[in-house]
Design a protein around this nucleic acid. Structure first.
Lengths: 146, 146
DNA sequence: CTTGATACTAACATTACTGTATGTACTTAC
DNA sequence: GTAAGTACATACAGTAATGTTAGTATCAAG
């Protein structure tokens, strides 16, 4: 965990690297953001929420295979990053609505482009698997000839 | 146990979902691809290799914080997916060149757009951290009482 | 009155991921 | 002869991610 950014508010020379956000730098906060946006469920949440607002359970049903815990945790992270807005109505059976913030919508757009490309290119990508593995999981391949 | 594919969408057959690649389906191979492309080091490798071909050590130096093991593993996965091309010269000190395949170049482009956006938007995103939490994560919101 | 739905949280177990250390086989440089 | 560089593989260990189960409170439907 790198919490160096807010500990000392007096940003000095170190912030040069940090301000512009350099993913190639070891301890840049952008790595954290990237990790959350590209996390297993983060991507899917962004994509689903981009279409329209969803309630917790609806979101869970829309995304195949998420556990409640993971969904809640993912939503929390995205909320903390300002990507997701959470609105809870104080009604008797809990009613909470999740939607994207403007920031989140920008992120979702980028993420969806990648996801769309993957879905579209899956046949081409899968062609490489059949050479080595038949199922669905790319396995280790013998090293190239020496 | 939940998460069977059938409760995701009844109007589309299983094979149809898989063929076209449905990320929202639980057991779709596209999930695997997404995981590798958006893995911690996968993203960075794609971005660096998009610029030009790199040798193993050069790649390692370009990406801050990768261990040899992780880099090798990441390259292997990307190679198995047909994103990265590996060319080894049978010379005395090992000489191996890694570059992107056409497929990999397409993927790298999408990934870089996301990465660029993050780097650019980092200040805006970071603003949310300082507001709620001093460290990085906890977003305790007194959402709705009762 | 029991079940199910809602939106979670906490504790615990398990799995996946990532890093460290070490070794290989050979060469160049000191 | 010792050290360093190249491009990895393997074994082991630690950390992080994820899943499972249980539980909260309330109300509607059966």
């Amino acid at each position: 965990m790198s919490g160096t950014i807010s500990d000392t508010d007096v940003s000095v020379s170190l912030s040069e690297q940090i301000e512009r956000g350099d993913l190639l730098a070891t301890n840049c906060p952008s790595r954290e953001v990237l990790k959350q946006l590209t996390s297993r469920w983060g991507v899917l949440v962004l994509i689903v929420l981009e279409k329209r607002m969803h309630r917790f359970s609806a979101l869970r049903r829309a995304i195949g295979g998420v556990s409640e815990r993971m969904l809640a945790q993912t939503l929390h992270s995205l909320e903390a990053d300002g990507m997701v807005a959470r609105v809870a109505f104080p009604v008797v059976p809990p009613h909470v609505e999740y939607s994207l913030t403007p920031l989140g919508r920008e992120a979702a757009e980028k993420v969806r482009v990648l996801a769309d490309w993957i879905e579209l290119s899956l046949p081409r990508i899968g062609a490489h698997w059949t050479a080595a593995a038949t199922t669905a999981k790319p396995a280790e391949q013998p090293a190239a000839a020496r």
